[in-house]
Design a protein around this nucleic acid. Structure first.
Lengths: 336, 336
DNA sequence: GCCTGGCACTCCCAGGTGCCGAGTGCCAGC
DNA sequence: GCTGGCACTCGGCACCTGGGAGTGCCAGGC
């Protein structure tokens, strides 16, 4: 039975533990939070919370610390999103000023997120499919190698090389014009369709190969990438090197793992913030870490962004920041 | 006076210290290296080496460890490059098989270096100027925004956006054709020149802006990038978190610092390996780290690659690996 | 003259001891 | 159902101590 006072106790313990990194005892808790009840009462509540799995004791006669389940309850039931400070608002609303291309936008975003949350930040590049095609370029790199370049309306560039049969420069020119006529300014799903229905009359042998490749680039979002920043923020956890820092460094090296983490975390509709705490993460070694993620871009194919940090983190502020940044980037992309 | 035996002693101390991480005493040294002299004699040599600054003692009655100066002498005078193991040779000669584009080559290289050396690996993307221009594309992103895309013969893509006055699609087409006629298949310095001398007759207003931007892209190598890999290898130094891991993480976040480090280290002609040890690095916080670097690509504008690790590293193997990888990548780029 | 064995000395480190304080659980009383 | 009180537990810290590794120095020998 979790009544209101127990929730208050849990909330106080989470808050104190996050800021002090030390197990929280009943006496200190009552003092620091001006509670209306005595330490003994709080102790009873703590015992009940521990009984139900929300708290744990590192050892007998130590204070309590929250479990993953405790953090979960805290996030679900208690944490009202903390309003951002004026400085944070200002940072968020100006950090994209003067961004020139997609790379620039992403790298600024990742730096901002890392700076404001003091955690490791992750930003996925927007999917191809969220944009319109601006131009397709075919460049002959070697006699039998062609590079296909796809440029989207947000300034993103995707490239692929492929081996093709012999061909002339004229072949390429014709093909390039035909393709661009079909896909220019189309949203990517429509472009993929237009490409399938392209009139093959008079086009060279290599057409099919190239169209296939472009189709893949448009649909599959072949190699979704994630930018990482704020790794030095892990320095604060030097003490927990083996359990926290090492697995995080290893995860950060693996794009696949990052994608899985972000993807699994950000299942909510864009604008909402999702939190995966400790064991809830789909990656075993990161059971001491939490992911706070959101998404941006069009709702039919959103890109994700978020942060990774120890379960012991300031969820209300972090969630507020992630949400604000995601919204702002999304807005910037649709407007710019 | 450093005679041969003292060099042997230094060599033995460096070797043992690198593998054991512990100060080396005279007795253990004589035993492990089957020396022909007694511990007492070695002690005298050690005292002399310490006197001259090649060794130091963490505290009285502890063994000796090498100083930066000691490592320097070791590298300069003693370390014969260790031949690579069969497995290493095999890894190096196959890791680029199937690499499709420049991004792929660089990311494979950085992973390989990290894997073989067990250190943090750095690989700079080849400079624009080391290649030929394959194509220049102008794409209109917004009414007054143009993206300039430069594609080189190795499949590298460089992009820049710029604001321009109003223009028509025809303007762009004319300009694009004129520019490509001038620069196609030229080595970048020649291309820059051709661009300067371009016949401006009949070209639109925005020509100058665009030519300037392309010129910058060609010459200045506007944003040299460095790929980083093997960061989890820092896990082995968890014990020295504050002094070693933290400053490294911070340095790795800063492309500028990395460029400076690699650039300063790899001043030798391509094919040679350069080592910067501890204090010799041009970045104060990394005074407990060494950089082993080499360069690849054309000798007039080489790109750098290398590794960063603690001064206590296996220099002979590391140097051999870095050299082998640099050579192989260089070869692959010229052939492929 | 250089190497060597011996010896006294230094100092880190690991293990053991004891105390202190924070924190708990429980209980009787209001 | 809350509270104050009390006995108890246990981690952390300071302190001490002995062992061992390593050194510097010196006198003697090849």
């Amino acid at each position: 039975m979790i009544d209101d006072r127990k929730l208050d106790v849990l909330k106080a313990i989470v808050t104190d533990y996050v800021s002090s990194r030390e197990p929280v005892g009943s006496k200190a808790l009552v003092e620091r939070h001006h509670m209306k009840v005595s330490p003994a009462t709080v102790r009873n509540d703590m015992a009940a919370l521990e009984e139900e799995g929300y708290l744990t004791q590192p050892h007998t006669s130590a204070g309590r610390i929250p479990t993953d389940k405790g953090y979960r309850l805290f996030v679900d039931r208690i944490a009202q999103v903390k309003p951002l400070s004026a400085a944070e608002r200002r940072a968020i609303s100006t950090f994209l000023d003067g961004a020139v291309d997609l790379d620039d936008i992403v790298s600024r975003t990742v730096r901002l997120l890392a700076m404001v949350t003091h955690q490791v930040a992750l930003v996925q590049y927007p999917a191809v499919s969220s944009t319109r095609v601006r131009h397709v370029e075919l460049v002959s790199l070697a006699p039998q190698t062609i590079m296909v370049i796809l440029i989207t309306s947000v300034g993103a560039i995707y490239q692929r090389s492929l081996q093709v049969p012999d061909h002339s420069a004229e072949d390429l020119t014709v093909l390039r014009e035909r393709i661009n006529a079909a896909v220019d300014a189309q949203p990517t799903p429509a472009a993929a369709e237009a490409l399938r229905d392209l009139d093959r009359q008079g086009l060279p042998d290599l057409t099919e190969d190239i169209i296939t490749v472009i189709g893949e680039m448009l649909v599959a979002d072949a190699a979704p990438r994630i930018a990482v920043g704020g790794v030095p923020n892990l320095s604060r956890f030097g003490a927990e090197f083996e359990t926290t820092v090492k697995p995080m460094l290893e995860a950060l090296e693996e794009q696949v793992v990052l994608l899985k983490l972000l993807g699994a975390a950000a299942t909510e509709p864009p604008g909402d913030v999702a939190v995966r705490i400790g064991q809830e993460n789909p990656y075993e070694p990161l059971r001491t870490a939490s992911v706070v993620a959101s998404s941006y871009g069009p709702s039919d194919s959103p890109a994700h962004l978020g942060i990774v940090g120890p379960t012991r983190m300031d969820y209300p502020s972090t969630m507020a920041t992630v949400r604000a940044v995601a919204r702002y980037v999304g807005q910037f992309l649709t407007e710019g």
